[in-house]
């Protein structure tokens, strides 16, 4: 497990294994905070005297909000690496962009799904077309689904990398709209405004949300690291196979005397 040269070849390294263990521990801690230590969101309405709030559904936000922030991070990284690729034209940038976009899309999908599951009890709807953030997030997700579809084509890797970079850069235009929508359409949209921006949160709730950010950042880092290595291996495997094939043909040629037959000297 901790031996880097173990017989099973993996994308793991001592660092990534340590990160993975820390992430698992963090996830357990987050679960305890979110489900045991924090209170449900209940308060007394000042004039009606009734209990109002999200009740226990608030525990979904310790999952939903950090994943949304990680989606921003992942897609920003994908766009940044895409720009880097267009400038530097090295595989490192391309593999990074691809990895970040793929992991980001997993997170973006989960943001949409968990948001929907939260919205049913709290808003009374699975999906609301009258919410700007929902619409812009869905568009963002679909654009990156298109990006991943483009990456699965059997094109020349460099052509594909260049075009994917352009798609990612156009898609990222939507990101500030997603992020700022709740402010720009403040009283025009269903989504609540940023809680952290106005610091309308405190104590254990705030702490749990912060732990959520940290833990999901670790989840993202771990996935990104491994996904990057898979992308890197894909490139290396392609090159290695070509190299091995050439070596093989050459061996055949030497063996059967083809080299001399075609007049080559070595």
């Amino acid at each position: 497990m901790t031996n880097p040269t173990s017989s099973v070849a993996t994308t793991g390294s001592p660092g990534s294994r340590a990160l993975g263990l820390a992430t698992l521990a963090g996830l357990v801690g987050l679960l305890v905070l979110a489900f045991v230590l924090t209170e449900p969101d209940v308060r007394i309405h000042p004039s009606t005297g009734q209990e109002i709030g999200q009740f226990d559904a608030v525990r979904l936000l310790y999952l939903h909000v950090p994943m949304a922030v990680i989606t921003y991070v992942a897609y920003s990284l994908a766009a940044f690496a895409s720009a880097g690729y267009l400038i530097k034209r090295t595989p490192w940038w391309d593999v990074t962009a691809h990895a970040a976009a793929e992991v980001g899309t997993v997170f973006c999908f989960l943001v949409l799904v968990t948001g929907s599951i939260w919205g049913r009890p709290v808003w009374n709807t699975w999906w609301e077309w009258g919410d700007v953030r929902l619409m812009t997030t869905l568009i963002l997700f679909l654009m990156f689904v298109g990006y991943l579809a483009l990456r699965r084509t059997a094109a020349d890797p460099r052509v594909q990398a260049r075009r994917a970079a352009v798609v990612a850069l156009v898609a990222i235009v939507d990101l500030p709209l997603v992020n700022r929508s709740v402010e720009w359409w403040e009283n025009r949209t269903l989504h609540q405004k940023s809680t952290l921006g106005e610091l309308k949160i405190e104590d254990l709730t705030l702490f749990t949300l912060m732990v959520g950010f940290l833990v999901f950042l670790m989840v993202f880092s771990w996935l990104l690291l491994h996904r990057f290595r898979v992308g890197w291996l894909t490139l290396a495997a392609g090159e290695h196979q070509v190299a091995a094939a050439i070596k093989e043909r050459r061996a055949e040629a030497d063996g059967s005397g083809v080299a001399s037959a075609v007049g080559e000297t070595s």
Partner: peptide, 9 residues
């Protein structure tokens, strides 16, 4: 809903 949300993730 809680189990569904955390579960799917």
């Amino acid at each position: 809903y809680l189990l569904g949300g955390w579960g799917v993730a």
